[in-house]
Design a protein around this nucleic acid. Structure first.
Lengths: 240, 240
DNA sequence: CGCATTGCAAGAGCAGTGCTCTCATTTGTT
DNA sequence: AACAAATGAGAGCACTGCTCTTGCAATGCG
């Protein structure tokens, strides 16, 4: 972050933050595709054209909101995970992370839809979003790695005999993990495969709940989520 | 379906279909939230206000598109499943259904986003959509039930010892299945739980792929999907 | 200090949107 | 033939994202 020197620069970052805050507030009410740049401008007492001094387009504003949402979700998940005192209780850390993710999602449904719903059309996620986007999964991977490194974890659920070796399809993920972790996962492609599956399953479950696809199938959403992530932990060898 | 009698009624159903077709064509290019009722009207050579004689609102048009999309996806999945000749090869039927689902999704990304992405804001799915929405999962359940009924299926993956009985949270799903199937699943709440999980996992995986969340983690999407649904089948006892 | 440069907000305007209302015409029924 | 209902066109309202011009105020420099 560049330190604001002149009054002008200081005002700029302040107003930028103000616009972003107003946009976040509006997002809490109407959903991404209804977010109106003009309404945001009115909120902060500007005329719409003035906003374009701070955000080149509506898409750029949305991008900033996406980053903010990823960061907020990541921070919430990390905080909950770090609040688990017994660091050797990997299952507790796992559950805490998952629970915090769901709690953030249901209390910020529009932000969740913004980042995990359908991307706004014609929109390609800029590079700035990938780092904050990985915070939750990185934390989950850390827990899995710690559990398997400590020897307290069982082997993850075995694939069917007919399944091919997953090394090829998860090569990118293994490289990604190898970059920011000193654990050697090269011998565990099956675990990486399972981790990716579990990651998709968690957010698939949340999306189904939030987007209404579980209506008529599940009566107790919280209980269902709890049971789900517990079984997913079991599939990864985190719970017995 | 009511048989069209008068010329007016005949024209009405024809024009309605024309509008829907134009809307579907436009949806193939721009994505749900960009779908313009005026543009659709221009396409069929009408003025925008005339379209309102056929669809009360843009949302109602979208609802019709949602139903059409669900039905098309369901039909594609069912056709692929029925093309499997060996009806006792439950794994083949499973894989065919899943593959067809993915193939439809990637060849109709906007339709997929319409039904499995974030719901359009302020939009509550009307009752008309729930029946077509269940076609794929109903087919999957049939396969699972057939496999477990024939005794060729292994037990599904066991939950961790600490997991509570899932009967409560999946009661609605059990009732739903009991309604349209003569198989007694009452003794198999764990299987129903796993089925729901797998269902969420499949569409979570597809959403992650289509919405770009697997970029940087998976290099071979088709191979990854294949490996995923094979393992999910294993979790349900469909593959060994 | 004075001046030129730069940053910024406002306003008008363009092309587009969903939707409503009125009006004339066509179609179907009695 | 007379009436009623259905239909399409057009104008219009309130809104959107975005651009361009204009005037003002803060800034940096000689």
């Amino acid at each position: 972050m560049v330190v604001a020197r002149t009054a002008r620069e200081r005002a700029r970052v302040e107003i930028t933050a103000e616009i972003l805050a107003a946009a976040r507030a509006q997002l809490g009410e109407v959903g991404p595709s209804q977010l109106s740049l003009r309404a945001v401008a009115r909120e902060v007492g500007m005329v719409s054209s003035a906003v374009y001094r701070y955000f080149a387009s509506r898409d750029e504003l949305l991008t900033a909101l996406i980053i903010a949402a990823y960061d907020e979700l990541g921070a919430a998940a990390e905080a909950a995970e770090e609040a688990v005192e017994d660091r050797t209780d990997h299952l507790a850390r796992w559950m805490a992370t998952c629970r915090a993710t769901r709690e953030w999602a249901i209390s910020h449904p529009h932000d969740y839809a913004l980042i995990y719903g359908s991307p706004v059309p014609g929109y390609a996620a800029p590079q700035d979003t990938v780092m904050p986007a990985t915070r939750v999964i990185v934390r989950l991977v850390e827990i899995i790695v710690a559990a398997h490194g400590s020897g307290t974890a069982a082997e993850s659920t075995q694939p069917p005999a007919t399944a091919a070796d997953p090394s090829g399809v998860v090569a990118d993920a293994m490289a990604f993990i190898a970059e920011r972790s000193d654990v050697d996962l090269e011998a565990l492609p099956e675990l990486v495969m399972r981790t990716l599956m579990v990651w998709s399953a968690i957010f698939g479950t949340l999306s189904f709940e939030l987007f209404g696809h579980l209506k008529g199938s599940v009566s107790d959403y919280e209980g269902y989520f709890e049971q789900t992530v517990l079984r997913l932990a079991g599939d990864l060898g985190l719970a017995e």
